[in-house]
């Protein structure tokens, strides 16, 4: 299982699994995309490269997921999948680079729910899973 959704009264909460931080973070991106529209149904026509840094792994995850919301709002980019990711220590924190594939928002994709923001609420980052609540 790549990810699962958990109960949360007002927002959306999910856990994404993997064998490394890279895999967990990539699956978290797909879980978040799934709230909006099924990433498996989105074509991988476009690629975007993403670089973010964070003072710790939680801030790194927060910033990475926020980048997806930024790409959606500014470039109408919908995620298909994260095709490569690398997380390396940098200074006192971490640096993440990733390649995303996806497509432009189009009438052929049915977007179910918008996401306002990523939050730190109940956030957990482990090497085998991460947990995130997003504000809807």
């Amino acid at each position: 299982m790549k990810y699962e959704f958990l109960e949360h009264t007002s927002d959306s909460k999910f856990r994404a699994y993997g064998k490394s931080f890279e895999e967990c973070f990539s699956n978290a991106a797909e879980a978040m995309a799934k709230i909006m529209t099924d990433p498996e149904k989105v074509e991988g026509k476009l690629t975007k490269s993403v670089q973010v840094s964070g003072t710790d792994l939680k801030q790194l995850l927060y910033s990475f997921l926020e980048e997806l919301l930024f790409l959606l709002d500014t470039q109408s980019f919908l995620l298909h999948k994260v095709s490569s990711m690398q997380i390396i220590p940098k200074g006192k924190g971490y640096f993440l680079s990733a390649t995303l594939s996806g497509d432009s928002v189009d009438d052929k994709y049915h977007i179910e729910t918008g996401i306002k923001a990523v939050t730190y609420m109940d956030m957990e980052v482990h090497e085998n899973y991460v947990q995130v609540v997003v504000d809807i």
Binding site: E66, F70, A117
Partner: peptide, 17 residues
């Protein structure tokens, strides 16, 4: 909309740092 959401995130980061 996204402007307000981003502003909140931006300042959470700045204040945290």
């Amino acid at each position: 909309r996204g402007l307000g959401h981003q502003l909140a995130s931006d300042y959470i980061k700045l204040i945290e740092d």
